[in-house]
Design a protein around this nucleic acid. Sequence first.
DNA 1: ATCCTCCCCTAC
DNA 2: TAAGGTAGGGGAGGAT
Length: 618
Amino acid sequence: MANNAVTNFHANSRLHFIGSWRARYDVFLDAKLAQKQHDSATNRTRDVASTSRATPRTIFHVDMDCFFASVAMRARPELSTETPLAVSWGTSASKRGEVSSANYAARAFGVKAGMWLDEALRLCPELVLAPYDFAEYEKVALEVYEILFEASRGECVGISCDEAFIDVTSRCESEDAVAVAEQIRRDVYAKTKCACSIGIGSNMLLARLATRRAKPDGAFRVEPKDEREFIAKTRLADLPGFGRHAGEKLQKSTKIRVTDTCETLLKVPVATLKSALGAQKTEKLLEAARGIDKTPWCVRPQRKSIGAQMSWGVRCASNEVAMDYVKQLVREVAYRMQRLKIRGRALNLKLWRAIPDVNTMRDYQGHGACDVLTRTKAMRELSNDTELIISEALTILRELNVEATSIRGLGVSITKLEHGAETATSPGAKQPTLSQMFAKRTAEKATHEEETCVLAASDEELAETESEGDDDVADTQSQLTQNDCDFTLFNSQAEIDSDRERSIRDAFEAAARAYAWQRFELGRLKLSKRRRDTLSEDEYARRACARAADVIATQARRSYAQDGETGLNALLNDARALCRSQELLHETYSSQGAAFIAAWLDRVDSVGKTIVIGSSSL
DNA sequence: ATCCTCCCCTAC
DNA sequence: TAAGGTAGGGGAGGAT
């Protein structure tokens, strides 16, 4: 049971969404930069990835105001802006969980992000709670990025789903910076119904600090003549990179508090700071305290590591279970590497080991008090091959020699990466067929079908023929519930044990829907012309889904008959890959389709993991 | 000297 | 106590 919680959490967690933002954004960036190269044939080529800025620039720091809460608000048009609302995993009944984001009405009651829900409800009993909606955050974020790219002609550095820097130096030679910022803010609001704030400064640091003054829903510029004064009065806690531990160390050795200003810090002997914080950190801190920021401007930084970890609900009854967790993590990482065409040379295993006798039984699912161990190993070869990485990872796990029952979390990450390399060709790598599948979007002509992916039924298989008559309509209709299709993938109980049937059916249902939507939206999934004319678009899409599910069910049965469990797992991997590939298709899809597919992706993802982990820990 | 490993710290 | 993921940078100290 605990494993279900793990996998569901993993796919639905706010931290996972935030942490994996870069990967989603990269897909968008690639499309953007490719388009830009195309533009440069007609326009003048511009330096997209310039690495440093010596001269003063005009930098905007664009930050969405209480992003998750704003997105939640637009889904609830009946609420006035005066209604306090918070996004949280918990409900007002359970009062468990933390506030992830609170709108400004809620903040007026003292409700803040990070606060426990029971406290938030005590401060503000009428607080409206909204669930996470990751698909929607992604959609809004990319809409905002679209605007920022436009406004800055591609000079946009994405920080997260709700935050970015843009360089508008050249544009602000002829236009007033604040006016430009206000225009961007209006554009963002018009497109997304979400407010953002913009800080303006001569470098990224000053722009970021300016945003603090701009919020909420405003713009603020640090004028060049005011920079000295501005930074001098800035609190140390506001400087980026200056966290809790740095604050404590500083206070211990210098009596300076994080609430003191940069001005104060500069009076401290440099040697004192260095012994407390280290040379590099001191250097950076002192630069920041003078308003200097030498961070390179890089629109598309190269990824240096890629990994996945789990430290929630991890409980291992035996070594085999621990090995299964590791295998599952490696599959996730290898899959991402294959999709991104990245290979690596070094493997890092991270393991949370419970500290004996410390709060041991108090945990429900959390990792509790732990030592965190990490081990690095050079891999036999530059690779992104699932099996190779699994064997290397299991070697490390064995060498760490940790009692399985004390393991509270595991992580796998790959470093020393090489980009753009060819993908592993070993048997495990079925996914490339999917990249082939979706590479076609950008391909000049829509030649289809070297698709060997199990789920990728040919269009012919999916297409209904004109000759199918009204009987078929009735047939299909009988399979439809009021709002949805009925996806029966496994008809016989004997085909698969009933415990797992439900999960697998769920996964394939989601996969089938995603698949059908892709085809539908690409205009390649066709019902008969007559039917298309008589059905509403919604109804048409539903039938198309039902049709696709049917074909996939047949394939699933065939695959199970042929390869048993192995065949099913391969199918599940494909299902996950298929749904994930929606990330590649944002530009092609309608927003409705993209949102649907994103939701199904989550389901396939979690069901897929549940099955693999669950089956091996039975 | 320089690199590497195993941490620690930070941001979002 | 509590949905504790992903990624980057740096330091100490050992290996080369």
